[in-house]
């Protein structure tokens, strides 16, 4: 369990990193925290011929740029906990990060790494899909913004092209008062989710004016539900119909069943976590 051979390139500028990735194409991978990629390499499930170390690049900002919160690809997970902008604008995000891994992993793992790895049970891909985030992908030929809902194509498969890397994720700032919550259930602390639910409710007074909901762990990519979101809009924080929303979401998803959990269980979990999550988010907003 040691990696196969590769060449190591330490990039000191983004342009240099992108030029290297362009040169290597499918054979190249950026290396950031290494918490997802290196285990895959040690198990020889990933065999990049070239690693481009991007840790020295200035991609670690958390700041408001325009109407979005910009989170650089190299922001380490542990920073989310104490960042005032995340706490202020994205309460579901803040709740989700409590479920990420263990302290040492949170200290080194990065936003860009987690999003690029695209584990279907991981928290951050779900958080991105939940918030309609844009994944900023850069390559030698330019930069593009990929909506999170179009970024995650399958388990461990993203819309990134060879030579492209994630430089940031942009979370559109909410236009009015919002509340949010994130809950998941794993076998142990820090485990990947059997199922997780995130919800964001925009509201005007007591009335829910917008709703987004996402489920992780149940399918190969994070799943949104237009039906649940439509159901919630127009309802009240005092009576958001959480139970019914859980029923709708659960009925709409055909979850995977495997040795970790049955499909029926995942369905049941989606129903209950959806109920709890909506009730929790609505409760926080009306408190």
């Amino acid at each position: 369990m040691r990696p196969s051979a590769f060449d190591y390139h330490k990039a000191s500028t983004l342009d240099q990193a992108l030029a290297l990735l362009a040169e290597f194409g499918d054979d190249g991978r950026p290396l950031a925290g290494g918490q997802s990629l290196v285990p895959m390499m040690n198990l020889r499930l990933a065999r990049p011929r070239h690693l481009v170390d991007i840790n020295a690049l200035p991609l670690d900002a958390i700041e408001i740029r325009g109407d979005a919160l910009h989170i650089g690809a190299l922001v380490r997970h542990e920073r989310y906990f104490t960042d005032p902008l995340i706490a202020e604008h994205f309460p579901a995000f803040l709740e989700a990060v409590h479920w990420i891994g263990h302290p040492t992993i949170r200290r080194h793992g990065t936003m860009g790494g987690s999003v690029s790895h695209a584990d279907p049970t991981a928290e951050l891909p779900s958080v991105c899909v939940l918030h309609d985030a844009l994944i900023v992908a850069a390559s030698a030929s330019g930069e593009r913004r990929i909506p999170a809902t179009e970024f995650f194509l399958n388990a461990y498969v993203t819309a990134l092209e060879p030579g492209e890397m994630v430089t940031a994720v942009e979370f559109p700032l909410p236009s009015g008062p919002t509340s949010g919550a994130f809950m998941e259930l794993g076998e142990r602390v820090g485990d990947f989710a059997i199922a997780g639910i995130g919800v964001v409710l925009g509201h005007d007074g007591n009335t829910i004016t917008s709703a987004r909901i996402v489920c992780s762990g149940a399918r190969l990519v994070p799943v949104r539900s237009a039906d649940v979101e439509a159901f919630l809009v127009g309802r009240t924080l005092a009576d958001p119909g959480a139970q019914e929303a859980g029923r709708i979401f659960s009925a709409a998803i055909d979850p995977v069943g495997d040795h970790a959990a049955s499909a029926a269980y995942r369905k049941g979990l989606i129903k209950e976590l959806t109920r709890r999550c909506i009730a929790h988010a609505a409760g926080k907003a009306s408190a």
């Binding site: 259930l185 970790a260 049955s262 029926a264 049941g268």
Partner: peptide, 14 residues
């Protein structure tokens, strides 16, 4: 007795 098993065992209570 993983979470999935416990959930199935408690079906009658739901």
């Amino acid at each position: 007795l993983k979470a999935s098993a416990i959930w199935h065992l408690s079906a009658h209570l739901r």
